[in-house]
């Protein structure tokens, strides 16, 4: 069965940045999780904060942006490269300061001295307004306080376990995070996180829900599909399509023959396979039986 999409967890910077542990899946392609001090396991996250700075550490042709996004409790560090096309386009257009929503995956770094850094690999970045930030703060505060509550109850137990925590009224999710936290971090100092939540909620009250007015407009860059079309691919595709038509008999063209003809035109097998897949995806050709390609 396909793996279902990971939830975007709501975590304040103060909690996320003090994470010291990553759970790496044992299977191939298994997702990795940053385990926060309160035990939340994060693979994807949704955060809102102010873009404080951005620097392009790459080149103009292959940019690699590092950006700092501040929430009321601390700073998220973002790294976006060529595999995050939407985030790259957005960062190129947006100038600090700007209030942004970020959906991203975890990114971790362990220094030679063993110190652990958790940052964010953004997937989607978009401008948001104050009310959206406030709602994010409130729901993140709620999730964080649920985790603290479960953890405090767990500290009071001789043998902290999920079953008893659920019986005490905690959700299965927070019960699991409490047990996870104790297993990895032992006893955690909750005060800095509680202070962070307080600062965040105070900001909501101070702001009074006032709107920023006009948000920065963002043009969508080339979507990944369109970007592909700009590659020399379009020409190759025409050539391959022409070859299929030229080599086919009544039942279609033999894959083997297509390979041969394409080789003469300098199209290698990998390129050919990709191109045929594209033609199949676009519905221009189909595969009546394996090994035979036929134009629609």
């Amino acid at each position: 069965m396909a793996r279902t999409r990971e939830a975007a967890r709501r975590v304040f910077a103060v909690e996320y940045n003090s994470s010291q542990h990553e759970d790496r899946g044992l299977e191939e392609n298994a997702p990795n999780y940053v385990i926060t001090p309160l035990g939340e396991s994060v693979n994807r996250m949704y955060l809102i904060g102010v873009l404080m700075s951005k620097t392009n550490n790459g080149t103009d042709d292959s940019p690699m942006y590092r950006a700092e996004i501040r929430d009321p409790t601390g700073t998220f560090y973002l790294y976006a490269g060529q595999y995050q096309p939407q985030a790259l386009t957005a960062l190129a257009q947006l100038e600090p300061p700007a209030l942004l929503g970020v959906v991203g995956k975890i990114r971790t770094f362990v220094r030679d001295d063993g110190s652990f850094y958790a940052s964010v690999k953004p997937e989607v970045i978009f401008p948001v307004d104050i009310p959206q930030r406030d709602r994010w703060i409130i729901s993140t505060a709620r999730f964080t306080m649920d985790r603290i509550r479960a953890l405090k109850d767990a500290y009071g137990m001789d043998d902290p376990n999920e079953k008893d925590l659920v019986e005490m009224g905690h959700s299965g999710r927070t019960a699991a995070s409490a047990v996870r936290s104790i297993g990895i971090y032992g006893q955690v100092d909750l005060e800095p996180i509680k202070k962070g939540i307080r600062d965040a909620l105070d900001l909501v009250l101070e702001g009074g829900g006032e709107s920023l007015g006009e948000l920065p407009k963002m043009e969508s860059g080339p979507s990944p599909k369109e970007a592909e079309k700009e590659k020399p691919g379009a020409e190759v595709k025409d050539t391959v399509f022409a070859i299929i038509k030229a080599t086919m008999g009544n039942k279609g063209a033999l894959y083997r023959d297509i390979i041969e003809e394409c080789a003469k035109k300098g199209i290698d097998k990998i390129q050919l396979e990709e191109t045929i897949q594209e033609l199949l995806d676009e519905g221009l050709v189909y595969e009546p039986t394996i090994g035979i390609i036929k134009p629609v």
Binding site: P131, D134, R135, I138, M145, R198, L201, V204, L205, G209
Partner: peptide, 9 residues
Amino acid sequence: YMEEARELI
């Protein structure tokens, strides 16, 4: 949501 923020505090 202001009331909610106060309750959470």
